[in-house]
Design a protein around this nucleic acid. Sequence first.
DNA 1: AATGGGCGCAACCGCGTGCCT
DNA 2: AAGGCACGCGGTTGCGCCCAT
Length: 388
Amino acid sequence: MGRAPCCDKANVKRGPWSPDEDAKLKSYIQQHGTAGNWIALPQKIGLKRCGKSCRLRWLNYLRPNIRHGGFSEEEDNIICSLYLSIGSRWSVIAAQLPGRTDNDIKNYWNTRLKKKLLGKHRKEQEARHHKQKQKQKQAEEAVLMKHTTTTASAYSDYPLIRMNMVVENTSQPQELPYNYNWPLMPVLPPSFSNESSHHHSFNDQDSIRSLLLKLGGRFSHSHHHHHHHVYRPSLQDTLNTTNNHNIIVPPMMGTDGQLVIPQVQVAVPPQQINYDEEHKQLNNTGASSSSSSSAGCIISNNNNTSIIDDNNQLEMGLDGVEELLLYGEEDMMVNIEKMMIGLGPAVTSTSTCTNWCDSTITSTTTTTSIYQHQQCAFQDHHLSYHDA
DNA sequence: AATGGGCGCAACCGCGTGCCT
DNA sequence: AAGGCACGCGGTTGCGCCCAT
């Protein structure tokens, strides 16, 4: 059975508020307050509105000192930082921006800031791609030279997988000679999270968060307020997991009323966190402490990203891999053609992937997905950012 | 000038939570 | 302790404006 409606929907007005309704509501609340009962309020005033609607109208538009639009760069940075830190908890974020409402911030984020961020990063990405292409070209030339005298077995010190490929735009599997020199790909370690199976798609929010992580949670690099940040997965991430290893670093209010994120560089003894306690902390601080889930953490600065596991045993650079993290699947096209240079016919294939973890052995039709898609669920790990 | 698609934003919906009885 | 109710919140919807064609 569903929940009983909060009001008689047939007899309440919906849609945009008229100036008259605004005036009535504003006048009444300024004189009498809400008396802690929004549901009864519209009847007292003679408004044919749902109490929730009145509340929303007051909170978002009629109450004093509300500002709309004209978000400053600093506000952008705060929103970005907090979004990365605590996720889409707009009310908490709004609490740090005087005069802003959660609804406004949410709309601003969804319609502008997110796009602004992606557009900005895409430009940087293109420049980086250009650079990388040049590097790659040089490397390919070197490999080509080497390949004439070296067989695949010479690379046996590395974990390798063999790829099957098909000729692009053909409908029949391509039979290639048994002794064909298949290109070889290094295999990255398997996913660092035992929960990676829960994250089958690399969604937009993940991508945005990864991007923010890279940018240090800031939209603008001209932000000078915080020099050391610790970013945590969202509370939701935390609640979705049972294997919690904590970083508890609640942002605090500074003497000037600004949000201050404590300087903590590394964590973390494993310990459980109690949700109720966390929730209390959140309410007290106006932001969230949090814990991470699973097996490792990402240490990142502007130039480098590393993963460290719980025992600090594994440490690996992510240079070059970060791209896969920063974009949705559509941007993760790995053009195998590059690796086929010098290896016979014009064999190409493309695949989306976030982890070089497995290979399919059979060639099928047209372009084949060569690698099983398995993403590294980095968002489930400690996300620690050190602003160098 | 007409039109259609995209975008921004105000408002709604429904769920989780806490309080009260 | 349990159920009902209201509040608060995040996600979603839908309308109106703007701009390109």
